[in-house]
Design a protein around this nucleic acid. Sequence first.
DNA 1: TTGACAAATCGATAAACTTCGATTAGAATG
DNA 2: CATTCTAATCGAAGTTTATCGATTTGTCAA
Lengths: 106, 106
Amino acid sequence: MMREESAIDTVTFAKALADETRQKIMALCCCQLLSVGDIVASLDVAQPTVSHHLKILKNAGLVRSERQGKQVFYTLNQARLAQGCCQVAEEFAPDENIRLVVDRPV
Amino acid sequence: MMREESAIDTVTFAKALADETRQKIMALCCCQLLSVGDIVASLDVAQPTVSHHLKILKNAGLVRSERQGKQVFYTLNQARLAQGCCQVAEEFAPDENIRLVVDRPV
DNA sequence: TTGACAAATCGATAAACTTCGATTAGAATG
DNA sequence: CATTCTAATCGAAGTTTATCGATTTGTCAA
């Protein structure tokens, strides 16, 4: 499995999501491995800005990184993001029924 | 039903969640109707600060308010919160299966 | 209508955040 | 080892946000 099992700090989680540029980065590397350069090329912002946002996302556990030679590739940690969403919902909306459905087709 | 059907702006939603004081307010008026004074009494912050945060939460559709005489009561809109969580999960974690389970026991 | 009470708005201040140019660190290559 | 390429870090500037005291608005009661 190797999922992050630890609980997420909901403030850290929400702050990581609370920026348009970071949401664009998340959307970009949602289902793929992208280098920092790839992300910079896709988003009208400078390279240090992208690195800054990636650091915040990484600190929240929302992206994984992997060095390949000179480049560093990032990808969204969807499981962690889903976990954060569920945790927020469970904590603040206990009367609603939100579930992480585990019977995912392999 | 009378739920908010409109899609939530995920940046506005995340920004509304991205503050510790606001999360405390949400936790407080999660399952009850509380006046601004009640909230102020529970949270070590001044009344204008609470009003400020309530305005942000209200703007995001996360609380409902209701005047009763001199007082204004607030309560968390759990359905809206759950909707926002699901929307974020669906948008950024499409490979995970998160659902708003509708077969809620009446 | 006057007074008292509750909450919203205003204005100012301080802290946090975003952004970017310049520089540094790390890795491959000649 | 020098060079080149990629990404991280640094430092500064500008913007946004959180906070509070003071004031205003709105409501009820006397």
